[in-house]
């Protein structure tokens, strides 16, 4: 709060960040726009291989696919400017609505997963750093390596094999009850727990070796206070980077898991729309995904300044 007044650069910091964010999003959109159109014909895919030639021609004409790509692109930008995100080529419903409908479904998985990642990964890593070379530390390192080296589809299949096929405790697909969410949530959290445990551990070990920790002990502070008041606030800077990245992928991070567990979220919509070349829907999805990532990034930058006064002047100077 006080640094807003003191640095006086907050406004220009925000503006430059927003500008950069806008450019990033525009680049993503342009790239997706071109690749989608150059890599397959929506008319052919949507109407099927047996569709008569004149039906295909009519479809192309209707969606403006016969225009030169520059003309299409300009039309797309103009409609974006008026917040028109287009309609689905399949059922003509507004693309934005299709996307927004799916977001809560995805968040049902990704938010509990994020809570698990943060709630288990960070404490485990910090505990390991505080008890180096102990059995607990070794256990955390092993779990962390396991967590982030095994791909999530393997974890997912393993969990299904154990809990659905062998034990028969939990359903392996669908979205009917909260029980259905357990396996996908676990699948998604394991890698993140490993990553966060490893990062928190190394961040904490780095901080505990700093001279100011010795200073804090030398003034007679209890070890508990040294850890909570002096070590953790410093270690939180690198940890926040990872958590920020995880927050940024709350919406887009579930593609693989939603596919494995047939969870009807944003990820499923993306996979289906890309294979159907449902242009407006894919473009709208990418816009939303890029937007959340950019926002999370901005939030991380602001958090940095809040956590570490040394970064305030630097980030403002960018």
């Amino acid at each position: 709060m006080s640094y807003v007044y003191r640095s006086g650069h907050m406004l220009s910091f925000f503006l430059s960040r927003m500008l950069r964010a806008a450019i990033t999003i525009l680049l993503v959109m342009t790239f997706a726009f071109c690749v989608l159109r150059l890599s397959g014909d929506p008319a052919q895919i949507l109407l099927g291989p047996d569709a008569p030639q004149d039906a295909i021609e009519a479809f192309r004409e209707r969606w403006g696919l016969n225009d030169p790509i520059v003309v299409q692109y300009w039309a797309y930008l103009k409609s974006l400017w008026s917040l028109d995100f287009g309609v689905s080529m399949r059922d003509k419903s507004p693309a934005l609505q299709l996307v927004l409908e799916r977001i809560p479904t995805t968040l049902q998985l990704t938010i509990p997963a994020l809570i698990l990642k943060v709630g288990i990964g960070i404490p485990a890593g910090v505990y390991a750093a505080l008890h180096r070379q102990s059995i607990a530390d070794r256990g955390v390192i092993m779990m962390a390596v396991f967590g982030f080296t095994i791909p999530s589809f393997v974890v997912g299949l393993l969990l299904v094999l154990i809990f659905s096929v062998t034990l028969g405790w939990l359903p392996s697909g669908g979205q009917d009850t909260w029980m259905h969410g357990i396996l996908p949530t676990l699948t998604m959290s394991i890698g993140g727990i490993g990553i966060l445990a490893r990062f928190s551990r190394s961040a904490m070990i780095e901080v505990l070796g700093q001279p100011y920790i010795r200073t804090a002990s030398a003034k007679g502070m209890s070890w508990r206070d040294v850890v909570w008041k002096h070590a953790l606030p410093n270690a939180s800077v690198p940890i926040v980077t990872i958590v920020g990245f995880m927050i940024g992928s709350l919406i887009a991070g579930a593609v693989v898991v939603e596919t494995i567990f047939s969870w009807p979220g944003v990820g499923r919509l993306l996979v289906v729309s890309v294979s159907n070349r449902d242009l407006a829907v894919v473009q709208c999805l990418l816009l939303v995904i890029a937007g959340t990532m950019v926002l999370a990034n901005l939030a991380v930058d602001i958090m940095y300044g809040w956590l570490d006064p040394r970064l305030r002047s630097k980030s403002a100077a960018h």
């Binding site: 700093q210 001279p211 100011y212 010795r214 200073t215 804090a216 002990s217 030398a218 003034k219 007679g220 502070m221 209890s222 008041k229 002096h230 606030p233 410093n234 956590l307 570490d308 006064p309 040394r310």
Partner: peptide
């Protein structure tokens, strides 16, 4: 030891800039 450190015997170090906590 906590009562002695800083209370009866205080210590200051070689590199003052890194001996102070940067975020406090």
């Amino acid at each position: 030891l906590e009562g002695v450190r800083g209370g009866r015997v205080a210590m200051i170090f070689q590199d003052p800039s890194s001996s102070l906590n940067p975020v406090i």
